[in-house]
Structure formats: structure tokens, C-alpha cells
Simulated scan of single mutants.
Amino acid sequence: MRVRPSGLVPKIGKIYVDPKSPAIECQVIDVSASGACLYVQGSAPIPKRFTFLHGSVRKSSRLVWEKGRKIGIQF
């Protein structure tokens, strides 16, 4: 079950492709134990695999679907 972030859940996340590249900022639309729906800022391409930082939690993630700048990821 996905839930919309509320209360103390951060609404902003970051995508890290590799240590040499700048982080890609994103808005967390909803999140579950196994994945999330994000709105990605800017125009940088989204790789198939990356590290997602949400609050203080880092998760190895993969891109599942993409519709414009809105993406679905799986942890």
C-alpha cells in the first residue's frame, strides 16, 4: 500500500547516480515499503539504477516506469 507523505515524512528526496555527479532533486509523491512515485526536478536523464536518499535513509533503487518527469521506482 502506498501512502502520501505527511507529518514528519520528508517530501523531498535525492537521486545519486555516482559520486562524481551532482544529486538530482525530486519531490516524493507517495512511498511504500518496496518503492515510490517521484516527480524529478530539472532535465537530467534518469538512469536505470541509482541510490535514492529520503530523509536519512539511502536505498538502492531501480527505475520501473517513467511518464515525463514523473517516475516509479522500486527499492
Rank of each mutant, 00 (worst) to 15 (best):
R62L: 08
L38N: 04
G42H: 03
K70Y: 03
V64Y: 01
G35H: 07
H54N: 04
P45S: 06
P47K: 01
V57E: 10
R62C: 09
P47T: 03
S60H: 14
G42N: 07
P47G: 02
L63Q: 07
R69L: 10
G35N: 09
R49K: 15
A36M: 07
A36Q: 04
A44Q: 09
R62K: 13
R49F: 11
P45D: 07
A44P: 00
K70R: 15
L63A: 09
V57K: 10
G42I: 08
Q41Y: 14
W65H: 10
S56C: 07
Q41F: 15
T51L: 11
T51Y: 02
P47Y: 02
R69H: 15
R49E: 14
S43W: 02
K48C: 02
C37P: 00
S61P: 04
V57P: 00
F50T: 03
S61I: 04
P45L: 02
K48R: 12
F52W: 14
S60Q: 14
G42S: 06
K59R: 15
K67I: 06
A36E: 03
S60G: 09
R62Y: 10
Q41E: 15
W65D: 05
K67P: 00
L38I: 04
F50N: 05
Q41I: 11
I46D: 08
L38A: 04
T51D: 07
R49T: 14
W65Y: 14
G35A: 11
P45G: 03
L63S: 06
C37E: 09
P45H: 02
Q41M: 13
C37N: 10
K67F: 05
C37A: 11
Q41S: 14
F52R: 06
S43T: 15
R49W: 01
T51K: 11
R69N: 15
A36C: 03
P45V: 02
W65V: 03
R69I: 08
F50W: 08
